[in-house]
Write a protein that binds this DNA or RNA. Structure first.
Length: 278
DNA sequence: GCCCAGGGATGCG
DNA sequence: CGCATCCATGGG
C-alpha cells in the first residue's frame, strides 16, 4: 500500500489495508454515499469526494489534511491484523473485513449520532441524521453540514420527534441544551476514565454509546462497545448465555487491550454483514 | 402483522 | 450493585 499526499488530494495505490466500502459500511459512520466507483464522505461541514477501484483510491477535498487523519492513514493496519489474526475467534472476521479502518471522526458529531443509534437500526439512524443536517445544518451548496452545537440548540423536542428520534427526542434535547462547545473541548482533553464518566452522565448515553463515541470520535482504542450483535456473537462463540454487556465488554478489553476497538469492528462487520447465527 | 434495531432510564430489592 | 420493565418508530 502506497500513500501519496498532495495539496488537494490523496492517492493510495495497492490498498490492501484500505477497503473504502468496508470502512464506510461497518457501522462507524452514518453520513456517506456510494454510487458505483464514486463516494462522498462527510464530517461536520467537510466533504471528501472519493473515486476508487481495486488498485487505487483517490481522495479529493478542500481540506485534505483533515481527511488524511480522518482515514487514519498514518496507522499500520497490517501490524494490527497480524497480531489479532492469531486469535481463532477473530480470524474469519479479519479475513472478511481486512480493509476496515477506524475513522477519526468529529467527537461532537459522534456524540449526537450515537445517541440516535441506541436501540435503533442503521437505515433509520441515517435518515434522522440527514433530517437534522437538512433542517438545522448550514447549506453548503451541494450538501448540508452537520448542525453545529449552537445550531442544534435551536431544535425543540418536537423537532427531534419530527426527525424520527422517538423517545430519544427528550434525551437529545436535554443533552444538547446541557452541552457547551467548551465542554466538548474539555472532553477531548480528558483521560479515558474521565471521558467515560462525563459521557454517561449525559442523557441518552450509556456504556455502549459512550464506548462508540470514545472509539470513533476520541481516538480511544481500548474500548469494546457491546451491542446486540456483539452480545449474540459472544454467546454463540463461547457457548454461554451472558447478557451483562458491561461484563462482556470488560472481559474483551482485558483480552484485546489497545487493539480492542479494531477487534470489535472486524467482528461487528463480519457477523452483521453475514447475519451469522453461529 | 411481527420481530428487531450498534440501549438507556427508571424503579425496585 | 443486579435485575426487570418500559420505551417510539420504522426497517425488513
Amino acid at each position: 500500500m502506497k500513500i501519496e499526499l498532495a495539496k488537494d488530494k490523496i492517492i493510495i495505490t495497492n490498498p490492501q489495508d484500505f477497503d473504502l466500502v468496508q470502512t464506510l459500511n461497518c457501522g462507524q459512520i452514518f453520513r456517506y454515499n456510494i454510487v458505483g466507483d464514486l463516494a462522498y464522505v462527510y464530517s461536520m461541514d467537510k466533504r471528501a469526494k472519493i473515486t476508487f477501484n481495486k488498485n487505487k483510491i483517490e481522495i479529493l477535498s478542500s481540506d485534505i489534511k483533515f481527511f488524511y487523519n480522518f482515514f487514519d492513514l498514518d496507522r499500520d493496519y497490517s501490524k494490527i491484523k497480524s497480531i489479532l489474526i492469531k486469535d481463532e475467534f477473530l480470524r474469519p472476521a479479519i479475513e472478511y473485513g481486512a480493509g476496515i479502518r477506524i475513522l477519526n471522526n468529529d467527537a461532537y458529531e459522534m456524540l449526537i449520532s450515537f445517541i440516535i443509534s441506541a436501540n435503533n437500526n442503521i437505515a433509520r439512524i441515517k435518515k434522522s441524521i440527514e433530517y437534522l443536517c437538512a433542517h438545522f445544518g448550514k447549506d453548503m451548496g451541494e450538501y448540508f453540514a452537520f448542525p453545529t452545537l449552537n445550531e442544534l440548540k435551536k431544535a425543540s423536542i418536537a423537532d427531534f420527534e419530527k426527525a424520527g428520534l422517538g423517545y430519544r427526542a427528550r434525551q437529545m434535547f436535554e443533552t444538547v441544551q446541557k452541552l457547551s462547545a467548551d465542554g466538548i473541548e474539555k472532553l477531548k482533553a480528558m483521560n479515558k476514565e474521565e471521558q467515560f464518566k462525563f459521557l454517561i452522565s449525559l442523557k441518552g448515553i450509556g456504556e455502549k454509546v459512550a464506548n462508540c463515541i470514545m472509539l470513533f470520535g476520541l481516538g480511544v482504542k481500548d474500548v469494546f462497545p457491546v451491542d446486540t450483535w456483539i452480545n449474540k456473537v459472544y454467546n454463540d462463540l463461547t457457548k454461554r448465555k451472558e447478557n451483562d454487556r458491561k461484563k462482556i465488554s470488560r472481559e474483551l478489553v482485558a483480552r484485546y487491550g489497545n487493539l480492542s476497538g479494531f477487534a470489535q469492528q472486524y467482528v461487528f462487520y463480519y457477523y452483521r454483514e453475514n447475519k451469522i447465527k453461529v
